[in-house]
Design a protein around this nucleic acid. Structure first.
Lengths: 353, 353
DNA sequence: GCGCTATCTGAAAGCGCATACAGAACTCTG
DNA sequence: CAGAGTTCTGTATGCGCTTTCAGATAGCGC
């Protein structure tokens, strides 16, 4: 009496459950007249096929999954989320890109964020209900990842490639190379400083390599290490400026400040402004990521725009490909990246998007 | 040999499948020693429980669903999605809010967008695999909604309340009332024009009612109909301005232009600028929604900020409540809304967020 | 060491569907 | 109209898990 099943529909239509199933899975294999009869009973009964039963019987769910980290404080939700523009997240774009791509391929998307502690559990839970899974770097512990990868195709997004798994990342090296080259060559700067991320951030390190490469190319002395490191927050950016421009700062000031991400760059921008240092007049500043805020700050921030939506799209593509051919070789894709030249490096306003 | 099941784990651990199941569902009901043995075998085998089998046997999936419209042209994807700031969608915030709330309650979130044509199919597909379902207004045909609602709890988001279903919407009436009152009273304007949405948009109509109410309150003649209607796009906003300010415009120009949403308002702003009409000097302009773009345009746009994230959160709350008590009375929630007064209505810059 | 209770484990029966296989009905030919 | 195809439908089985019920085992007092 509660939710109708194939049995109910079959009985009402005077056919067997096999026929009912066929009407949904393979309509052409059922005579038109019979099909109509079945569909009519289904409609009358309000029959909705059970995804679980379907998945169990057919060994596939028609769902792709995405696990991503969300460090947002759940409690503060209503308070901080009041301003939509501010909180556009990295993951939103990945989700959107992935959902659209998934739809094109006939899949729905199951998403699950995770705090570090429960990440493993969340992961296996979604892994158990999807045909393929994308994992945003650092979202889950390696151990869990490995287990899960034995069950469903997994593609790792950003971060470090994982042994034997498909992988998509953006061209961190290239991006930083481009933008550093721009400072060095177009703006003819000679002394730059790099504010990196934590040493264990693969993305951050790749960016530093690009920074180094640009120096190499320009025939300048190769910086061995980032001049400073921060934790990628705005606060860290401020801190970096304090250190570089503070009373105890040694040596000559750099002509350009290259931050490993936008957040820090924005923090740095604020700190510079407070100190009365003109950007880009006195010093050029660049970021990385292309967060929305980078267009809102004054001066607008020169940065590298990451194609987050693409990440999601490529993830789906890789999953679909692997689903079609399970034993293909693991593939790593590198997404091109575009430098956006704005005011903070000394380019005229309106040059970039 | 492929994906291990309870049987494999049970055999390896020397227990029955019932015990394996218990280890996952109700760990305390299994002796510690046995439990460890089972978990060890599971780890060694790389066992990941099948969500489908679980769902089938337990009649619940641990997943909530969201169906939302996405009118984005899938093909144009890579081209247009390059700028993240621009494309922050309405649905992104709902998704994020819902995912977080769902996580708090131990659920994952299944999302599926839909074009109109396939909406019905998509809906039943997700309905078949979730414990509860949120549907963004206009995302699906009524007929499909009704069928689905017989199977799982459904909450309708925004738009029109649906008979017998839980419903959450934002205070369109209130918001438009506030903002219109502001124009009428704080700025002492007398002649306004309202650019509405399609007549079949419940949100748009509710806003118009608020607009009317403000006139009523101010003792001004009651506008019977929106002065113009558009399809809620920027183009429609431009069009509206063309019509009102074009050669064939009749009567005196309004002192304020009230758009039913931000998109149109932004389009209108551009058109006014091209015609050399000063905003807010010559005419005030307001929008509705609080899209990120509303802060980026010059002058910044006075608007009503919709708590989209809240919509998602409330949806989850209602679903969880109904899941706990299936036959509670349908509940309708109205989310409060906040007017954001910015430059375009004549308020000083920086007044609003 | 016995009987009793409390705890733990196993056997078995589905959950709702897909699908292989076989059988029924129908369509053509000659 | 018989026989060979062809198309359509039904029977039966199993997908991997949860859960009830009963049986086994352990703990305890006397």
């Amino acid at each position: 009496m509660s939710t109708p099943t194939v049995y109910d529909v079959a009985e009402r239509a005077g056919v067997s459950i096999a026929t009912v199933s066929r009407v949904y899975r393979n309509p052409d294999s059922v005579r038109g007249e019979t099909r109509e009869r079945v569909l009519a009973s289904a409609r009358e009964l309000g029959y909705v096929p059970s995804g679980s039963a379907r998945g169990l019987a057919s060994r596939s769910t028609g769902v792709l999954g995405l696990c991503y980290p969300d460090f947002h404080d759940a409690e503060a939700d209503s308070a901080t989320a009041s301003d939509p523009g501010e909180v556009t997240l990295y993951s939103d774009e990945v989700i959107r890109g992935m959902e659209r791509a998934a739809r094109r391929h006939g899949y729905a998307l199951l998403i699950a964020s995770s705090h570090a502690d429960e990440a493993g559990v969340r992961l296996t839970e979604v892994a158990g209900r999807v045909d393929g899974l994308a994992v945003l770097a650092q979202a889950v512990p390696d151990e869990a990842l490995e287990m899960v990868a034995r069950r469903v195709p997994v593609v790792v997004l950003a971060g470090e490639p994982y042994d034997g798994l498909d992988h998509v990342k953006v061209a961190n090296f290239d991006g930083q190379l481009q933008i550093t080259r721009h400072l060095l060559s177009a703006h003819r700067l000679r002394r730059l400083a790099f504010v990196g991320g934590p040493a264990d951030s693969p993305d951050g390190e790749a960016r530093f390599l690009g920074y180094q490469a640009a120096h190499l190319e320009a025939g300048l002395p190769l910086p061995a290490e980032p001049d400073l490191r921060g934790d990628l927050t705005q606060a860290a950016g401020r801190q970096a400026v304090e250190t570089l421009f503070g009373a105890s700062a040694k040596g000559s000031r750099p002509q350009g400040l290259v931050f490993a991400n936008d957040q820090m760059a924005v923090g740095g921008l604020h700190a510079l402004q407070e100190r009365g240092v003109d950007v880009p007049g006195d010093i050029a500043v660049t970021g990385f990521d292309g967060i929305p805020l980078s267009r809102l700050v004054r001066p607008t921030l020169t940065t590298v725009l990451q194609p987050m939506g693409r990440l999601g799209v490529e993830a789906v593509e890789l999953l679909v490909a692997r689903l079609a051919e399970r034993d293909r070789a693991p593939e790593a894709r590198l997404l091109p990246v575009a430098a956006v030249l704005r005011e903070s490096c000394g380019c005229p306003a309106g040059t970039g998007a």
